[in-house]
């Protein structure tokens, strides 16, 4: 069943069209990889799916589980199971990571009509998840991402993903800034989450990540469109020959 359907999406930022009619369908249980040169619109697509303000959708639609995603506030999308691991996670001084995690998890659960976690249950869950991702507890005592290294910020995104258990995970350059060990641990975390009901969209520049998170389908994005889709061997092809051949196609 289709989880995410992006149909002929056109998006403008500050009067300039960035996505020029992008189509993408992600079914339950699938892992998709999106590759493409800098500035081709990968983060723009992920932001529009997550509901970031500042983007004007001039045409097309996005359906999530058959519902019009563009009609929903970002927090509603989140509660429905959309999760974006940001390319550049922000620092939020003064908001303790634990407070943030608990407030967010319970807000999502409340929106779905589920009971909120009690403090001990919540702490237990965070401890389990952070242990499996090799995230030290004292990192969680700090403000959200405050003073975190680039790699730690990315790990914190994966931690949230594991905690919130979304049905669609979009990972925007999760691998940038991660060392080899951290990359493997984070990829293990993503794989552990993979299930027949859940789909992953992995945005990356490097084929290496796809050795750990093996995609069913690889898409090439160029100039605001998906210009080619294929199996995982497409990633290897790109690694060898670069994007030049697709620039013309776009």
């Amino acid at each position: 069943m289709a989880l995410l359907e992006v149909k002929d999406l056109k998006v403008r930022v500050e009067e300039r069209e960035i996505l020029h009619g992008l189509t993408l369908t992600v079914n339950e249980g699938e892992i998709h990889a999106i590759m493409g040169p800098n500035g081709s619109g990968k983060s723009t697509l992920s932001h529009v799916i997550a509901g970031k303000p500042g983007y004007e959708v001039t045409d097309g639609q996005i359906l999530f589980k058959g519902e019009d995603l563009l009609e929903m506030a970002p927090n509603e999308r989140s509660a429905k199971g959309v999760f974006l691991a940001f390319q550049y996670p922000v620092e939020i001084p003064g908001v303790a990571t634990m407070t943030f995690l608990r407030t967010a998890l319970n807000a999502q659960r409340k929106a779905r009509g589920e009971s909120e976690y009690s403090t001990p249950d919540f702490l237990k869950k965070v401890r389990e998840v952070s242990k499996s991702l090799n995230i030290p507890q004292d990192m969680l005592k700090r403000g959200v991402n405050v003073g975190f290294s680039g790699g730690e910020k990315k790990r914190n995104e994966v931690l949230q993903m594991a905690l919130f258990e979304p049905s669609l995970c979009i990972l925007d350059e999760m691998d940038s800034g991660l060392d080899i060990d951290a990359l493997r641990i984070a990829a293990d975390g993503v794989n552990a989450l993979h299930s027949p009901k859940r789909a992953m969209v992995v945005i990356t520049h490097y084929q290496r990540l796809l050795n750990y998170i093996v995609p069913d389908i690889v898409h090439v994005m160029s100039k605001g469109r998906v210009v080619k889709s294929g199996g995982k061997e497409l990633a290897l092809e790109l690694e060898a020959s670069g994007y030049a051949q697709f620039e013309d196609a776009a």
């Binding site: 509901g51 970002p74 927090n75 989140s78 974006l84 943030f100 967010a104 999502q108 919130f164």
Partner: peptide, 11 residues
């Protein structure tokens, strides 16, 4: 910052 929090489910 507001968007980050909202994207994580906070109204």
């Amino acid at each position: 910052l507001l968007f980050y929090l909202k994207a994580r489910g906070l109204p």
